[in-house]
Design a binder for these strands. Sequence first.
DNA 1: TATGAATGAGAGTTCATTCAT
DNA 2: CATGAATGAACTCTCATTCAT
Lengths: 219, 219, 219, 219
Amino acid sequence: MPHRNSRRTNPRPRPEEGSEPEKRRAILHAAVRVFAAKGYHGCRIADVARQAGVAYGLVYHYFQNKDELLESVFAEQWTILLNALEAIRSGPGTSLEQLASVCRFVLDVFRTAPDAVRVLILEVARAPDSLRAGSTRQTFEAAVRLVSEMVRRGQETGEIRHELDPMVTAACLLGAIELTLTGLVLGILGGPSPSEQEIERLEGQVVATVLGGLASTRR
Amino acid sequence: MPHRNSRRTNPRPRPEEGSEPEKRRAILHAAVRVFAAKGYHGCRIADVARQAGVAYGLVYHYFQNKDELLESVFAEQWTILLNALEAIRSGPGTSLEQLASVCRFVLDVFRTAPDAVRVLILEVARAPDSLRAGSTRQTFEAAVRLVSEMVRRGQETGEIRHELDPMVTAACLLGAIELTLTGLVLGILGGPSPSEQEIERLEGQVVATVLGGLASTRR
Amino acid sequence: MPHRNSRRTNPRPRPEEGSEPEKRRAILHAAVRVFAAKGYHGCRIADVARQAGVAYGLVYHYFQNKDELLESVFAEQWTILLNALEAIRSGPGTSLEQLASVCRFVLDVFRTAPDAVRVLILEVARAPDSLRAGSTRQTFEAAVRLVSEMVRRGQETGEIRHELDPMVTAACLLGAIELTLTGLVLGILGGPSPSEQEIERLEGQVVATVLGGLASTRR
Amino acid sequence: MPHRNSRRTNPRPRPEEGSEPEKRRAILHAAVRVFAAKGYHGCRIADVARQAGVAYGLVYHYFQNKDELLESVFAEQWTILLNALEAIRSGPGTSLEQLASVCRFVLDVFRTAPDAVRVLILEVARAPDSLRAGSTRQTFEAAVRLVSEMVRRGQETGEIRHELDPMVTAACLLGAIELTLTGLVLGILGGPSPSEQEIERLEGQVVATVLGGLASTRR
DNA sequence: TATGAATGAGAGTTCATTCAT
DNA sequence: CATGAATGAACTCTCATTCAT
């Protein structure tokens, strides 16, 4: 009986520099959707395979195990977000304008790809330690650091108050976005199925709240 | 003949009508801890029973099933928080002072009972729909509304900017708190095991950020 | 400590020589009903206790365990049947008349106490070996023997064909009754809720079929 | 290029489109045996899997749950019986001969496959309502109807007494067979392990009893 | 007698993972 | 690459039985 591979010349099963097998992609996309819909633990391999229209076992051909799959989902989504944040940071505009862009960007993405955002935002810290210990935590931290960097630069230029801790400020800003999104998802804000205009209005509100603060006068 | 006592002639210290059985309480407490440590799906009945020091089956004596148990946990924790928020709202102080108190209160509780806070904050929206559809969503919404009410009153007294939407503002405030807590839990803020002083500092930072906003000058 | 009851002149709860405690009786009655409704394995102690209106533990006060309880139910029901069969046997009438009475008796009882009959007839051989090994098998066999005795006597008087094996004949007769009852219970015979008249008609049919046989002419 | 096969050169014994997977069959067979040995409620999935020599989970690969498995067992066995009855009915012979064949057939099958018969005969009406409501009740009724049809035809040809109700007669006949089998199973008839000859003798006895009736003379 | 809280073994079901084809 | 049958550990839930009061 011929063994699997006479010489193992690696005919091609390797991710072949850059070009990713189409089915791998399908699985990843499916995972995002299922993940978003059912959460980390509710997301079963069978669901992902069915959603992707591939055979059960193929998932294990491309991913070591469930954790690696979901870790990949996280990583990919975060990478997209990080790239966007980085683009904003290295782009034009004052720090305050950049931070406003961050708010708008996330809520904008939600409008077009709510699943991805849910995965990104709502599932952080929900995954098991194994995940958190992995790249996810790092990328999450990276996002906070990136935003805190914008804050720090704003402090240098005098746009942002010096007394604020950039990291805490970044956390507050991202947290404000997150819970606004949660409110949206749960239907507490914006109603059961918010219109695009409504979401735009919420964007403006979040920006105003976070940048300007609640108080009408400075103490 | 001396009757045992004025009203309650219960010969044996029976589960004292109306008062909650001690073991039920133990199970609930254990559930909070396990829940916080492992999340909704990672939380197994066996863990809860062991943690509570009771037999497996007893959990099912007091609770219909896993969902009802965890729903109870949610309900209890939220009730505690809601009561505290309500106490703050109906207490003394200006609206801004009250909102500052809210920030401080949650972070304070975290210092003394991090598990409860994790359950409360980190698990919202993570539970299955059955839970979200239940009392949890309502109480979550209640919390947002309570805070938004404080905001609204602050707008009436002129302390808080009129252009802000109270609900969005409340969501931002609670979100800022939440992600700061998440940062604490993950060790991104305050280091691996933050001192009480460090947490106090973070409290001040969050209050300053949220109430005063990021911008050093108003547009 | 004051004892339970200053006077407590034993109003009656004592087993009072020979007289069976009222609650024991209630449990037994309840067991018959539950047993009939749910079958041996579907019958839970909790159901019996609730149906009897007594506390859980009391069942174990009067009966060693579930098997003993259900064995008691069997024994009691069979005893009633055996006594009736014996009364018929030692009573007046030819053998054929007696056997007709047996048919009528069982179907009659069904009319007034279908539960008891179901337990008696439908549950034989369904119970675990432990039960079958016990008195149930013996009483079941006793019933067959009793009927076969009537058959034997009929053969002696020439009423019944000599070529028949009394035991097989008895089994056939009881079997005919049983499946007719099953048909009644399942609604295949007599419709969903048969009238008394309908049951009477079935009685006559069974008697005619069993005693006279199917064939219109003897070979 | 050699086409797949002349008839059966299947390189891999794949589940052969359309044909039933071999292991599914093994599970079904095992279920019959375990079912017969322990009854509906005593029959555990683990037993079936072990008996079939397959892994626990495979049972759930082929069957939704325990009820569906046992329903399948019922359905299959009844189908076999129904087919046999139908074959007898549409075959040659007078009605009386056909009915005699029915008696002989069932007792014959018992000789070669006692398990299947036990399942078929002894477990009817013992299963939970869910089962009874399903195909089982219908097929049971179908069997009674099939036999009653033979009776009716016998009445038309004058072989069978006109005064008998075909349905009741059919029930009596099948009941006679059933309780004779029960007697066999319990060792009340034919002794602990009856020889084939003994069973043949019982067959004759049952036929004689049912067809000819008990009475030696017609009233 | 009587109660019902407490126990824990056992059974059904799910699902990540492996493997032969 | 691709498939999906096969495996079995893990988990939820049930219920007979015990026991302190």
